[in-house]
Structures are given as C-alpha cells and as structure tokens.
Amino acid sequence: MANVSITSLCDQSAALARFSAQRFGVGGWHTDLAEMLEACRPDVVHILTPPATHESIARTCMAAGAHVIVEKPVALSNPEFQDTWKCACQHGVRLIENHNYRFNGPVAWLDQTIARGTIGRVEEVEVRMALRIRDGGRYADQNAPHPSHKLPAGVIHEFISHLCYLALQFFPTDPKSIRADWRNLGADKLFKYDDLDALVRFPTGTARLRFTCQHWPDEFSITARGTAGQAYAELFYPTCRLTRRRGGSQHLVPTLNSLSAARASLTSGIGGLWNKIAGRTAYEGLERFLQETYVALANGTEPPVTYSDMDRTSRLIDALLLPENQV
C-alpha cells in the first residue's frame, strides 16, 4: 500500500521476531512492546497475538498514541471491549477489529444481490464453517496445547467472530432470542467445545450459526433465504449461486435454476483453479479491508468496521455463551 511502511515487528521470541523481519524485509524487530513503541513511535499497530492478549496490548499501544488494528476479538467479553473502546476515545485514536471476510468477493456479491431485492426480503441466514481442526495441526496438538483452548468458547472463540459479524450484517436490530448448543464431540479433554449449533432469532428473521470439525469438506459459506429466492456464497472456494423466482412457466423454473447452478459451479471451478494458480486465497478480503481502513485513517473518516459492528459482534458472542441461552 502506498504511504504505508512497516517499521518494526515485535514478538516474545527474539528468533521468531528476527526471522519474520528478515522474511518480510522489515528493518527492525523487538521483543519488548514498550521498547518498540518508544523507539518507533508508530502511527498504527497491528495486533496479531493470541486473543487473550489483545486487550492489554491494545491499551498499551493506544496509550502510546497509535491507532490499533486488532485481530478478532478485541476483548473476551463485551464489558472488556467497552473499556478498551473508552481507552481509544480517551487517547483520540482508532480501535478497529479485523472483519476481513466481510470484504471477500462472494460476500460483496451477496450484499449486492440482497440490496437489489433479487431474493426478496431476507428471512433466514445460515453461516456455516466446517474446519477439520481435530485432525492435526496447531489446535489438535496435545503436547503444546494452543492458548485458544483456554478461551471462554475454547477453540471456537478463534472463529466465532467471523460467524457473528457475517450474520449480523443482514439483521440490523438486536436478537429477540438465542439458543446455542455448544458441544465437545471428540473423545479427549483438550477441546472445550468443537461444535456449535446456534439459532438467533431477530425481529425480521433467523440466523443459524454453525461450526463443526466433524464434517468434510472444509467449508465457509453463507446462505441467505428470502421471500423470492436464495443466495449462496462460499468463501474458502469462492462460489456464488443464486436460486430465484423467475417469470414465465413455473414448470420450467427448477430446470432453469438447475442450469444456472451448473453454470455457477463451472464458473467457480474454473475460477477456483485460476485463484489457486494466481496465489489468491480466502484472505483476499484482508487486503481490501486494510486498504479501506488505511484510507479512512489517513483521511480521518469512519473506518469500514465501525464501533457498532464491533459492539454488536461482541454482544452476540457474550449472549451465545450465556448459560440461560445454552441448550
């Protein structure tokens, strides 16, 4: 990005900080945050540490006069988020949570489809993430358990913000009722929860939030069902599919919609192959999010992820974890 340069990296591990600085061509690295802030006086700090550390690091950075772009969640509860937000206001800096998937191409397509009224009034939204994190990798490591296992929602806390902010963008009001089924379907005690099935009822419709590590293939999808059709967007393997009410003979509508789905599958297959070759990943939205955020910071305008976006996401996560809302 023009007018943006990375001045330093910070990690508790000197080796990792140095390795990362070399790899990304960053001039400096530190193992002490306060020392880095003092030495670099950055305009913006990106916080990419484990979730439980976000809040305290964000406060330190904001107190040093830096805007903060932080991985989700900003804090582990809404009261803590509110305190952190107040801290940002006191120091006259911005606090911005990374909602990168909202900026992915398929989500933008979904927004436009709904805004055009193509599927009518949206009454149901399902946000579904399937990740086989139990089969190996950092979350399944019994020898050095990942810090996210200690979060209120366990490992799912790493992903729940994505499900929540994506669902909330379709429902502007607060939920009426919530039923959340948190489960641990594995045989071991490493995971607190590895499965979530939640129904969130809003005055205008219902959102289903689903996280599973039992199913194959990996998937991150949003399905919006409306009064005149449904729209499906897949983020891991970018796909956009529309099934809608059509004019003319209603006998032909299923066939036309099937042909339309076949075309969407073909397009996404070719597009997926092209994306793979071109090195584009599901993080495509991150680049867009950061570009818009930096433009807003430079111009002093409202960032693309607002206080309301972050506050509603944080409140919904708290509500999903409330004992009275659990099945």
């Binding site: 591990s13 080796a15 990792l16 950092r138 050095a144």
Partner: peptide, 11 residues
C-alpha cells in the same frame, strides 16, 4: 507450525 517446532523450540 514448523517455526514453533524447530526455531522456537531450539531457542
């Protein structure tokens, strides 16, 4: 993961 298991472990 390899940084954790090789570099940080060694450090």
């Amino acid at each position: 993961e390899q940084l954790g298991g090789t570099v940080i472990a060694t450090e």
